[in-house]
Write a protein that binds this DNA or RNA. Sequence first.
DNA 1: GTGAAAGCGCTAACAG
DNA 2: CTGTTAGCGCTTTCAC
Lengths: 344, 344
Amino acid sequence: MNKKVRASARVGIRDVAAAAGVSPTTVSHALSGARAINPETRTRVLATAEKLGYSPDLRARGMRSSRTFTVGLLSDTIAVTPYAGQLISGAQDAAALHQSVVLALDSTGDKQRELLGIRTLMDHRVDGLIYARMWHQEVQIPPELTSVPVVVANASSTNTGHSSVVPDEHRIGVDATNHLISFGHKKIGFATVATRVPAALGRERGFRQALADASIDVNESWIAAKSTGAKGGREAGRALLEREDRPTAIFCFNDEMAMGVYQVAADLGLSIPDDLSVIGVDDLQLITQALLPTLSTVALPHYEMGHWAVSQLFAEISGDRTANDSELLRCQLVQRDSVAVPKE
Amino acid sequence: MNKKVRASARVGIRDVAAAAGVSPTTVSHALSGARAINPETRTRVLATAEKLGYSPDLRARGMRSSRTFTVGLLSDTIAVTPYAGQLISGAQDAAALHQSVVLALDSTGDKQRELLGIRTLMDHRVDGLIYARMWHQEVQIPPELTSVPVVVANASSTNTGHSSVVPDEHRIGVDATNHLISFGHKKIGFATVATRVPAALGRERGFRQALADASIDVNESWIAAKSTGAKGGREAGRALLEREDRPTAIFCFNDEMAMGVYQVAADLGLSIPDDLSVIGVDDLQLITQALLPTLSTVALPHYEMGHWAVSQLFAEISGDRTANDSELLRCQLVQRDSVAVPKE
DNA sequence: GTGAAAGCGCTAACAG
DNA sequence: CTGTTAGCGCTTTCAC
């Protein structure tokens, strides 16, 4: 019941100034450290601010300094995977390092909604923008996205001038295949997707390269390209495992396909990892942890991509780094129980 | 090359006013429709604004009207499920209906980070706040969260005064069980979790109620409470299926546990749905669509909860609705291929 | 080291 | 129906 009368009128810099017996200007500078202040005064001001429960109004602050402490994140999420959450989470953490927050918006893949989202983000005067995809792909930055720094996440932009970050797909292929090779496998299959997306292309190149480096010949009939998902995994698994000379290990394009391979293996009476080693990509814990045995995989770095993108954005804004950097993120191999030494 | 000289100086209401030969006030009102304007003038102003590529500065607008067109969303996400994305997505869509955006922040379950998040959100002067959990639970609203309207999503608040929205767990139990009953099952098991969370309690009550309503006796040894996840599902599945008098159908606490039951069934040579019907809860498509046969389930309404929460928030802000409403959301039964008529 | 004044882009209050 | 004036809360000149 103490001055709380005008509860709606939040305490501002002015109130602090009055209470501390200085001018608003001094409070401002004491808070921001923008110019030298008598240490004593400074301490007093800070204490007063604390006591009064002062909380800065970022909008007002931004009005003058033309910043909003806000970055936009435009994605194409359809929320069936945890990817969006992970990427946003990384973006948030990086933004927090710059006293900023992220304004995430998804377009559901709809051009109309995307345009609306861009407008909204612009109206909020975001300091910069992350243009993100949930699946690694090539994108064209919408021309409306001008007059604001943009960094592309999990996609590469065809129209240049923007930094971008993607997983190192080639390396994923190399690492996964090498992991199988390191256990002694020589007969290694690849269950992949038929679409010519960067992920498929890169991982296959990596697969071939790792085999070549180990002087293992590629058996073309041990590469099965089907649709994605568990269904595609089952198709690929059948193609690979129902042959006389079947591989002893299969590198799967992703965890869902690996799950399909598990199903076929069970059906054929093949035990994992004794009769067949399997490795996936993605590290969707819902799958990798639930499968029996748990699935070894290469984790996709969504969190890291979000983090990198926002860090890069701020670096560009402050002029520390130039646009048009592009980063290839190394992915982590996660060892679980689906890979073992081959029987024979 | 045309006036674009001062590209950084965005066109504002003033520029539009000058170009249209009216005062800024008129432009403001023409834009907002807050007061009557000569239709002709209005049209001219709007056209000018469009031509000049005017985009309102929401911060400035909010400065005067003390709104930010922004709602905060504080969650405890650990991003292994797509839930967060779904809830946020619902929140975004509802916010868009009020020309607002959502500022999502997660605390990773850390009290310290949560406090920081609250501060950040407050500094950004969000118009309201959604306090969300990814797993249905009871929460206590942090005392710092005062001076701003709060709605709780996927949790119920012990300290009153806030509206909240949760799934109707009892109904989930009833609907899932009834679904099995409708196929003719009488020997129905329940694979659940041992923790006394609202979801487990409610679903079990619903399970019992549905059986009672159908005059089917509950066989207590057909209720197995284990840990969650596929592992718990396997344990529960073993407990239920390795008996002489085994149930012909199992209602699983969630999809992951259902996956565990699938694994045990396969191990015991039981075919789904011929020898055993299974139904889950969650509708995690990564699992439900990947399992063979695809899993029937009851979908958790994360999108809807996000949507409801934000709608309620705006209703409270505008005074249309009072705080302290609480909503029980009906969940959708998703029929797939894991339920069939029992053999015998 | 500190203050006073001006103003970011907009809308609300007060005029006509 | 329209315009003028003031001011949201802060930072930034410019002055001392």
